[in-house]
Amino acid sequence: MKKTAFILLMILGTFNISAQELNQYKYVIVPEEFELSKEVNQFQLNALTKFLFEKFGFEAIMKRDEKPLDLQENYCLGLSAKVKDNSGLFVTKLVVQLEDCRGNIVFETKEGRSREKDYKKAHHEALRDAFSDIEDLNYQYDPAEVSTLSTTNNKSKTEEVEQAEIAEAVPATEQRETSNEAKTPTSAPPELVVENPMISSASAKELSFEKDAKSYFLEKSETGYSFFQKGSEEPFAVLAKSGDENSFIYKSLTRQGVAYFEENGNLVVEYLNSENKSVKQVYKASSN
């Protein structure tokens, strides 16, 4: 009996920690279409997801809507909502997941279930059942907890992010010679939130690149470039102008350094890693 009580207390303790950590996130971003769907807002599931998050205290935003200024400046204030379909032949089963700006699942609900035969009713019932876990969180945004967004990564996580931070670019103007001092970063905090990862790219020219058998592209704007991995709708890094038209300040979720173009169109990014060692990455221009 004591052993059972101890296990229950451990489970409840873990749940409370998860609930407290979620309070540092201000927004939930809901896509117009989930992976389980065959069309936009199928069964009105996306609209219902937004409604339920708002009902339980979150500030929910559809992905294509204009983002608030603080979210534009720090995309890590938001969590991305996902709905996972585990349905069987006779039971509709849905799980709601919350993913942070680094692609980590920070919260997952129980499996919401429904035996309704009508698809729309079944999906709504299963989703509401899953949201009972979110209701129990008693979520309330706490600005005091926001600082933990940029200080919780350990060394292994930092190295993992380093591998994911691949930015490719082609210069839109003629190469200019830059000094060695301009190409070498003098400092780079191990954790630096992107200052503005949502640079407007309306009508900007799209440029394509390749690295490690993966495709990327960047979009040019008045303030520099936004980096994208092919298939992603959100940039993972930016290049901000630093005076010389060929020199840029490189900023990602966890890194700050410098970037410059080579004469052949390749982009060089240099920054200091968590061990204060210089890292240099060269990204080849693609003809596609």
Score class of each variant (00 low, 15 high):
63 K>R: 13
141 Y>G: 04
162 E>T: 05
91 V>C: 03
124 H>S: 13
41 N>E: 05
7 I>M: 14
277 K>S: 10
66 E>D: 09
102 R>M: 13
166 I>V: 12
58 F>P: 00
41 N>D: 15
153 N>V: 01
52 L>E: 08
105 I>D: 02
175 Q>C: 09
177 E>M: 10
8 L>W: 10
204 A>F: 01
106 V>C: 11
64 R>Y: 10
280 K>W: 00
130 A>D: 05
53 F>D: 06
190 P>T: 11
155 K>I: 10
103 G>S: 08
163 Q>E: 15
178 T>Y: 14
141 Y>K: 06
50 K>F: 02
178 T>V: 15
46 N>Q: 15
145 E>Y: 11
219 E>I: 07
233 E>A: 15
110 K>Y: 01
154 N>L: 01
130 A>S: 08
102 R>S: 12
209 F>Q: 08
241 K>R: 13
199 I>G: 09
72 Q>A: 08
277 K>L: 03
282 V>K: 10
22 L>C: 05
86 N>R: 08
30 V>N: 02
46 N>H: 10
76 C>E: 04
112 G>R: 02
203 S>L: 07
125 E>Q: 10
283 Y>L: 03
190 P>R: 10
177 E>Q: 14
13 G>F: 10
100 D>H: 05
133 D>P: 00
148 T>D: 12
57 G>V: 06
69 L>M: 10
24 Q>T: 07
89 L>G: 07
216 Y>G: 03
251 K>M: 05
20 Q>N: 12
251 K>W: 04
273 N>C: 04
260 Y>L: 06
79 L>F: 04
7 I>E: 14
115 R>S: 14
283 Y>A: 03
66 E>M: 00
67 K>H: 08
171 P>T: 09
178 T>C: 13
112 G>N: 04
128 R>F: 02
128 R>Q: 15
189 P>C: 01
171 P>Y: 02
17 I>H: 06
60 A>L: 06
60 A>C: 07
177 E>K: 13
1 M>G: 15
88 G>S: 13
72 Q>E: 14
44 Q>C: 02
189 P>S: 11
93 K>H: 01
92 T>P: 05
236 F>T: 00
153 N>G: 00
273 N>P: 04
126 A>C: 06
20 Q>H: 12
72 Q>K: 15
85 D>Y: 02
244 D>A: 12
228 F>L: 02
26 K>T: 05
102 R>V: 05
262 E>V: 06
52 L>H: 00
91 V>A: 04
197 P>D: 01
179 S>F: 07
193 V>E: 15
217 F>R: 07
279 V>W: 01
105 I>K: 10
75 Y>Q: 13
128 R>H: 09
281 Q>M: 09
121 K>W: 11
229 Q>R: 07
277 K>D: 08
108 E>F: 00
58 F>V: 01
38 K>G: 15
203 S>M: 09
134 I>M: 06
116 E>P: 01
269 V>G: 02
100 D>V: 05
229 Q>I: 00
180 N>K: 15
97 Q>K: 11
187 S>K: 14
179 S>L: 12
139 Y>P: 04
274 S>D: 11
38 K>V: 05
172 A>N: 10
257 G>T: 05
273 N>R: 01
244 D>H: 11
112 G>Y: 04
92 T>I: 06
